[in-house]
Design a protein around this nucleic acid. Sequence first.
DNA 1: CAGTATCCACAAGGATACTG
DNA 2: CAGTATCCTTGTGGATACTG
Lengths: 120, 120
Amino acid sequence: MNTASSASDCVASWCADDDWCGVTCTMEVLGRKWNPVVVHRLLERDSLRFGELAEELGDVTNKVLSESLEDLEDRGVVERTVENEKPVRVRYSLTERGRSLEPVVGALEDWGEDHLADDC
Amino acid sequence: MNTASSASDCVASWCADDDWCGVTCTMEVLGRKWNPVVVHRLLERDSLRFGELAEELGDVTNKVLSESLEDLEDRGVVERTVENEKPVRVRYSLTERGRSLEPVVGALEDWGEDHLADDC
DNA sequence: CAGTATCCACAAGGATACTG
DNA sequence: CAGTATCCTTGTGGATACTG
């Protein structure tokens, strides 16, 4: 389980006017290990099922991916759609808010691509 | 956007040629709690001493800030300069590589600023 | 297929006190 | 001033097994 916001809360007074609060705010959404990658995949593929996502990410277990998706859903970034069929099917896609992360994830990707040679 | 993604070489075996590797790469640098904020401050102030940084960040202890700075130094993002004076003084600034993170941190900040009202 | 349920491990953050 | 040194707690992640 997880609460909406953990240790540092952007609404808290201690960071009210600080301009780096925006950075912290975004990191609460993208700070969890698989979150940025999940958003990245969904930006490209529009909609993916649980299994497809797991396969693309490669090294993630059901439990961890499930937690990551639940977290993103709670934060209004990802939308979960259950299709009533015999074998249950679930589609994951980005909400409007999720799609608004495109410039952020794009920047993360660009910088990373430019520095893969270095070390990472 | 680059949906095609030139799928550059990824050094880590576990993420071989996956195009989301760039995202992961960047997150290794900015994933640690205070790292993005430290970089953000240094982008604005150019150079800060340990105490100044601690004061600006507010809720960080000496130990944690120290670890964060060491991590950033190891990753070639931050540069540490010791000035030989009576009370030891140390200046922290960004390397060229660190300054190249400006678009990334800028994107993090912009998104966060636009969503502070929501929840974070 | 799309998850839960358990149990475990460990990095990292935090509190507090001390020092060259 | 700019850290270390300790010790403690917790959040995540991971492995494995099971299910509607």
